[in-house]
Amino acid sequence: MTTALLEYKNVHKIFNQNMVLKSINLIIEPGMVVGLLGKNGAGKTTLLRSALGLIEIDTGEVFTLGANPTQLNTELKSQVGYVPQQAFGYEGFSIREALDLHSSFYCEWDNSLEQDWLKRFELNPDDMVENLSIGQRQALALIMAMAYRPKLLILDEPVASLDPIARREFMLDLFDLSLESGSGVIFSTHITSDIERVATHVALVKDGEVKLFNELDELKSSIRKVNFNPTQTINLSQFDILHQTTNAAIISGYQNEQIPDALHISSLSLEQLFVELHA
């Protein structure tokens, strides 16, 4: 019996003759907060959707809470929370009505969390959902996905439209969820600083492939940019070379050793790493 909340095994997906997901292998366990980083169109949304049975993969397997995502039973569904990139579904409802209906589908709905969050995001329960700003709709979607404390939380660009204060509040609640409920979170974003604050792990997606998947702390400790003279040959064979240009290389597996012929060894922020790997 696997303890993994979400598992991708050698997953491929082709769409319109394009390989949108390539050899995806990922495991998400309780307590992990995985930040999915990648450019627009890199395949993040497809990756997340395939965990929910919204998109069917071509080869490989996906296990959501140990089951086939297209065949989740009621019990498993009430343990998964999902916030899609585009909010849609409760047009015509007021916030109060929407929450009333939505909560009726879950046994474990936390009313105090709901009220707390409504206040925090400054949402008026009598406002009509379709008149909310994008940020407010996103906040409502977050409430709807988290109020029943799911074991697996899947968020697609969840904080893109939230202001910095709301983002901060959201992140703090995310911690509570993952720590206290032992939940696992996977969220996609292109705001690297959010990942650096919140995530325990980072998965970097480029052209449908997961180029990097590691613990964030580990990543920062062991990834370095090495500058060298283009005319000199430099020996980097003991490291994992993630990217190389004529005068610099991004390596992983660095452990504070000396590198002969290196002009400069520097550590990178996640943003810098992201930019360098796409250069």
Binding site: Y82, P84, F88, G89
Partner: peptide
């Protein structure tokens, strides 16, 4: 058009 409708049990 609603992405999540099958994910909410019973919806």
């Amino acid at each position: 058009a609603t992405e999540w409708h099958k994910l909410v049990p019973g919806y």
